[in-house]
Design a protein around this nucleic acid. Structure first.
Length: 254
DNA sequence: ATGTCACAGTCCCTGTGA
């Protein structure tokens, strides 16, 4: 079983790339963020021809999250069941896994109301993880817009006073992890940066100036099944890349 | 180097968000 998360920065602009990646990577489940399209535009038909079902929570030109699966897709949930007005979380049961695709608010700046919204949003996600049923196999994947530690940032000194690295954001992510999930890429690669995002500007990718902000949080009961986790860096290369690369986890059958 | 994308509307440029 192979599961990936990918902020595609517009599925309209990235559809061909996403479809090619599903096949080349032989994915069972892809958790997508920033589709930036409404449900009417989502390529359900095209994905079906490739053997995938999909569920989409779209919001016009902003946000938008999806789950693409070839191992079943049931019990789809949109949002947290609270009053979040933005399309940032979709859940489903696929192949015996409860999966969520999450697009955590950016925050913009520490003194911006969007930053407070980001912290509230992460607290709501923590509560969602906390109240899962005993024994559930859970994967929460997405663009967290938080670099959990300094190893996840190419230049921590350049980010002083910025979002993505603040103590409150890191604490909020840590509080989710304390609910019994594991940041699986970091768990398997304790010393490598494993960046997943590089700014389009400044030749950031070429210069290695990235962040690790796309995470796969897997419930601890899945750890014995975990075989590998890695970043598909090649997807940041070539024609019209997203500014994010996909992050993958491979699981043995359970 | 405030250096790139993608989107929608003001519609072939500009403002916004990332």
């Amino acid at each position: 079983m192979k599961v990936a998360t990918w902020n595609v920065n517009s599925l309209t602009a990235r559809r061909t790339r996403v479809e090619a990646y599903l096949l080349s990577e032989d994915l069972d489940i892809l958790l997508v963020q920033e589709t930036k399209q409404n449900d009417a535009k989502f390529p359900f038909e095209s994905l079906r021809e490739l053997g995938y079902e999909a569920a989409h929570y779209g919001q016009g030109q902003w946000n938008g999250v999806a789950i693409i699966s070839r191992v079943g897709l049931e019990e789809v949930t949109r949002g947290f069941g609270d009053d979040d007005p933005e399309a940032r979380c979709i859940g489903a049961i696929c192949g015996g896994l409860q999966v969520y695709s999450c697009y955590v608010p950016n925050g913009r700046a520490l003194d911006d109301p969007h930053y407070a919204y980001k912290l509230r949003w992460l607290a709501a996600l923590r509560d969602l993880v906390a109240r899962r049923p005993d024994g559930q196999r859970l994967i929460v994947g997405g663009d967290f817009n938080v670099a959990p530690s300094d190893l996840d940032c190419h230049d921590p000194s350049a980010f002083l006073g910025a979002t993505h690295v603040s103590e409150a954001e890191r604490t909020a992510v840590q509080e989710i992890i304390e609910m019994g999930v594991v940041d699986v890429t970091r768990h398997l690669h304790p010393d490598e940066p494993c960046f997943s995002w590089w700014d389009y500007r400044n030749g950031s990718f070429r210069r290695g100036c990235g962040l690790r902000i796309d995470l796969l949080l897997v419930s601890a009961n899945l750890l014995p099944s975990v075989r590998a986790s890695y970043v598909s860096r090649d997807q940041r290369k070539g024609e019209k890349p997203s500014d994010h690369a996909p992050v993958v986890v491979e699981l043995e059958p359970f």
